[in-house]
Design a protein around this nucleic acid. Structure first.
Lengths: 227, 227, 227, 227
DNA sequence: CATGAATGAGTGTTCATTCAT
DNA sequence: GATGAATGAACACTCATTCAT
């Protein structure tokens, strides 16, 4: 059982670990360290020296690769915003099964490739710091949110087109019904769950199954009883 | 049409008479100003002097009422965590209509009393700063999240008991299907929406209706075997 | 047995005490409170509000009587520098007994009228703050040190003139032999003794007797053995 | 003629190359600067930036070596409390001459090694700030005052044992007859003398000789019954 | 007169950033 | 390149002083 609180990485994982670092790896290690710290403590509360220390280099070295803490932050975000949407679009464009299966697959794949990985921290980061980095927020909106929303929208549209989903879906807004539980899960994972582990013994499989079930079939027993 | 980006409060415009003695009003004004700024910029990036200025007083005055910036933050959170759940529990315990109506009413009422008000900023604040203020996060978890979750769970249970909702609901997790769109809306309202207004021309009524519809009836046309 | 550490006044002696204060007494009470606090914590570390609180008035009232903290300090010093030297000079000018008796009497009287009283705090105060208040130091030098030294010098001279004291006394410097133990006693009383009570179980009578004995008769068994 | 007011050090005159890397030297330079300033103006009235400036570095550098102004103060005191007493004890334990010579030698050596040096400032510092730093005062009491007092006591005892000093000396208190003029001299040097130079044209040799003479032989012409 | 709420200059401390080595 | 000592701008917080009531 994959519990939410088990997913938080321990902080000092590789503080000592690999001493035989290749020089070319430096920026990557700095970005790695920075991602963890920014997600955990926020941009302002993260000290440049701490990032450097966790990456196993000196403070000065950090500024050798990134001209400022702000640029480091931006690099962290850019680095972790995968432009894999074309690949994913392809994947979903050629999907063969029912749209119901597609939705479940979509959720599963999102969890495996984003939700469960450190990439999920980026979402937390963006949402927390958006107001202080509006250009980054816009960038994220454009590179991730919009393509993601479009992808989801296309899936839903396919369902409607194929007669699987309700004709009267308000497509522009129905995407939130699918996206919200993912965003919410990320937020929990990176904020409250680490603070109150006993309150978040989430079984991810059940979580994902439950939201997929409810999303597809609704809470109600039958369809005709509109509220 | 209530658009998300219209909901951000403009700067305070008063700050009239200086040196006016009004001890009673000060703390509230400071908490008000602090809430706005903390939500907008985060705890660390908000300067004490700025909070004071927005409240129309000098820096020194802030520290007359709150011993430190951290205590101000805690006061902001505590102040805005109303213990209104007993009242709400009452309201829902004596609800007369169908549980479908109840869910719609719940969403509507949540928006009016929380989502649309500045109280929603607290959720953003907590989620953004939880790791830096774990005690506050725990406090919020206990005072808000847990009672809120319980309330929602009771509603769902009522629906199952009355035969309105599916028997096979995974109650512990179904609550997220209702809560996630609310949390997500709050996050959007306080982070990306102010940065990319053109991307968030959200019509709240449609948003709320859509998630309620989908939550209750699912995306699918009819209830066949789950995919 | 009068032990040094018993002589330190408890801080909150009259915090509540006499509520029926006469208005005319205010400045005096402020000076009283200020003296204690300045002696205990030094000028800089003493807060005006604390002085006011101990005197049982508000912060504003203090500044009603003294234009600034610095003026308060100066007033404290001036107030406690008794111009009683003319009286004392009289007393010693008409002294009838031997100069040995005179020296012992001088020490005793100093202790009773200065050393044992709160006036002794002034010396501690002046010495500690002299560099920050050079004009006050000069004032003290002129009003207290110089007359005091002169008085002592006259006593010693009387002893020499009457053949009681050694002819070869270096009068200008011999005064220190009498004054130093007094200054030292004051310093101990107001600094180290309150911090290390167990190290300063001083029996004042023995202290005064010992220094008088040694001053008058020296440590040596007989006079001719010059070192 | 060594006059007391000539002994005050002028401001530092170096501060040459900036950004010179010399980690080893910094703490010492800062402690040096801090000692001077703390002695002159007291702890509270000395600004951290001023200490740094006098040491020829920036404010930030000070906090690189000392975590706080208070720790700087403590370091200043500790640094200057040399544990040289064992060496001195040795020196006096093996002293060959008369105890009269020993007393004169003791006074002379004290002046050369402590009184005339900046170490004397520590005594002034401790006495002025004891009430604000009780733990440091206790530390000083234990590390300096007690060993010093013991050393003096042993000298006096030697004199009594060898029949050089009076049998009826009250040893516990007689130590003050020797120590007080030293403490007093330090106090004058660091407080009133710099303010009223014309009042303190002290000839140290005469001062030391006078107190030694009077201490050993007393003021009186011959040893008659104590008054 | 007395109050105490309000002020703002001043200071300790932090930390991103620089640069001599 | 890499380092880490040094910097100084920025900010939290204090407290003497003011002044409307």
């Amino acid at each position: 059982m994959a519990t939410l609180t088990k997913l938080i990485r321990p902080l000092s994982e590789d503080a000592q670990g690999k001493r035989e670092r290749r020089k070319e790896a430096r920026p990557g290690e700095l970005l790695d360290a920075a991602l963890d710290l920014f997600v955990e403590k926020g941009f302002a509360a993260t000290r440049a020296e701490e990032v450097a220390a966790r990456a196993g280099v000196s403070k000065g070295t950090l500024f050798l690769y990134f001209p400022s803490k702000e640029e480091l932050f931006k690099a962290v975000v850019r680095e972790n915003i995968s432009g894999r949407f074309s690949e994913w679009n392809e994947e979903f464009a050629t999907f063969e099964g029912s749209t119901l299966e597609m939705v479940r697959y979509c959720i599963q794949v999102w969890w495996e490739r984003i939700g469960a990985t450190r990439a999920s921290g980026i979402t937390k980061l963006i949402i927390s710091e958006a107001r202080n980095f509006p250009d980054l927020a816009a960038f994220y909106q454009q590179e991730v949110i919009r393509p993601g929303t479009d992808l989801v929208r296309r899936i839903l549209q396919r369902g409607v087109a194929r007669g699987e989903f309700r004709k009267d879906l308000d497509l522009d807004y129905a995407v939130f019904s699918l996206i919200s539980p993912m965003v919410h899960l990320i937020m929990m994972k990176h904020s409250l769950a680490p603070c109150c582990p006993q309150d978040y013994p989430l079984d991810i499989e059940r979580y994902l199954k439950s939201i997929a079930d409810n999303l597809l079939h609704g809470l109600c027993v039958r369809r005709e009883a509109a509220a």
